[in-house]
Every structure is written in structure tokens, then in C-alpha cells.
Design a protein around this nucleic acid. Structure first.
Length: 159
DNA sequence: GCCAACGTTGGC
DNA sequence: GCCAACGTTGGC
């Protein structure tokens, strides 16, 4: 099982939007970056865990957890002429873009802000914190995952 | 294949 | 709204 971080602008799609989706599941579509596309298409597997990151907002940071429930498949929004993600160069035969389905696991009591992440020397080698990194999907090392869940005060929901 | 121009991302 | 960093585009 692998760990990932996925960025979303909460004004467009927040962790609460995911929680409120049917079956708390939604496609992670609209990614239009080749490096991120390759991870969606080739690497992300059902059961992988995801840090849901809020970007371009008042307090950017990790807002909660999700998991992959469907591995990479062609992103249908690329075929919709009315979609902001439409790409005429993506065909049914040769899809250019891919997406996965993610399901809500939990929301952190408080967002773990980017500023706090930057304050942790142990996290300094996270791609997220590297200057100029603009990837919207990136892998997370297990020890980084543990540190962030600890910062969030996260305890798995009991049943 | 180079590289300038342009567009996008995303923190601040 | 600004701007740095980076990716993409397209002329040559």
C-alpha cells in the first residue's frame, strides 16, 4: 500500500465536497500534467491512502484523508467539449489524461497548515515543500505520512 | 532541437 | 493582486 498527497482548491472541490459525494466517493479528474498523469495511470492502486491537501486558499494545508477505490482510467472530462478540462487531443482510442476514484476516510479536526509542515525539519525533503514544486499529485514517504498524521492528532475512526 | 514567449500554479 | 517557478508552445 502506497501513500499519496493530492491537491485540490477547496473553492472548486474540498474535502467536505468529497465527504458529501454519493458513497463519499468521487473521481479525481481534471489533472492536466504529464508527471501527475503518469502516477494516476500507472502507480496508484486500490487501497492506497491519500492526504487531501487544500491549495490556493486562506490556510493551505492537509485537510484530511482519503483512499483510492478505483485505479487509473481515462479521464472522461477530457472528452466533454463543455468541460473546463476538455482536451480535443484526447480521444477514446488514445486517451491522453487519466483519473482515479477516491473515497473519503476522515477530516482532520484542524487543517495541518503548510506553514506548520515547513516548520518540521523531518519533512523538509517532501516534494510538497520543495521550492517551485507544482505537482498536484505526489507520493508521500511512510515516515512523512506518520509525522503528518501525528501533527493532525489523527486517530482512526472506531467502529 | 533551441529558446523566447506565454500560460498556469499556488503561496503570500 | 503580485510574482516566482515551471511547463508548454511554436517559430526558426
Amino acid at each position: 500500500m502506497a501513500y499519496w498527497l493530492m491537491k485540490s482548491e477547496p473553492d472548486a472541490f474540498s474535502i467536505d465536497d468529497l465527504a458529501g459525494s454519493p458513497d463519499a466517493t468521487a473521481p479525481w479528474d481534471g489533472v492536466r500534467n504529464y508527471q501527475a498523469r503518469n502516477m494516476l495511470r500507472d502507480q496508484m492502486q486500490v487501497g492506497d491512502q491519500v492526504l487531501f491537501y487544500h491549495s490556493s486558499c486562506a490556510v493551505p494545508g492537509v485537510a484530511g484523508l482519503a483512499e483510492i477505490v478505483r485505479s487509473g482510467y481515462p479521464d472522461p472530462t477530457a472528452w466533454l467539449p463543455d468541460s473546463p478540462y476538455y482536451d480535443p487531443k484526447s480521444s477514446q482510442d488514445k486517451p491522453r489524461w487519466y483519473c482515479v476514484d477516491v473515497r473519503f476516510i476522515g477530516r482532520f479536526e484542524k487543517v495541518v497548515p503548510l506553514s506548520i509542515l515547513r516548520g518540521q525539519p523531518e519533512l523538509s525533503d517532501m516534494p510538497l515543500l520543495r521550492p517551485g514544486n507544482r505537482l498536484s499529485v505526489m507520493p508521500v514517504e511512510p515516515h512523512h505520512w506518520m509525522i503528518i498524521l501525528h501533527l493532525a492528532g489523527w486517530t482512526a475512526p472506531s467502529h
